[in-house]
Amino acid sequence: MISLLQEAAHTAAEHTESVASSVAHGETETATGLPQLDLTSFGNQIFWLVVAMVVLYWIVAKVALPRIGAVLSDRQGAITGDLMAAEEFKLKAREAEAAYDKALADARAEAGKIVAANRAEIQKELDAAIAHADAEIAARATESERRIREIRDSADNDAREVARDVTAELVRAFGGVVDQAAVDQAVDSRMKGTLQ
């Protein structure tokens, strides 16, 4: 295969040379033979190819790739950093939520306590008021009872006086001699059963 290629290239080179000479003689330029197999240009192409590849390699390997790699890893770092920050924020939010819940529960408990205290105070006041009212009522009741008793006692005495007087008069009317002490005793013994 290689020898075939070389042979082909030789013939092509001959063709090109003849073309070159014909161009020099002022004829129209037409390429016979494949330009790719023109061995005379191989050295030139390979020389410039090596120069270009060295330059290109230097640009790609020393300038472009480190820069792009740095940019990509920076971005990766930024993304990971952002994700971590987000995770942190999430954690903080969770903590804040827990704190809020706790505060809420505390507030509820406090409120319950206050309500209970208020209730107890009110109860106390109420009890005091009731007791006061009871005492007043009791005082008034005893006062009333006392008055009733006084009234009853005075009524009793009055009735006794009347009964003594009436009895003494009756005895006098029947012509007896009034023995005041015996009258009193009789009236008292009679009234004992009736007035109580």
Binding site: L4, A8, A9, T11, A12, H15, T32, L34
Partner: peptide
């Protein structure tokens, strides 16, 4: 084909 055409 190219070889036959141009180089033979």
């Amino acid at each position: 084909a190219l070889l036959l055409m141009f180089a033979v």
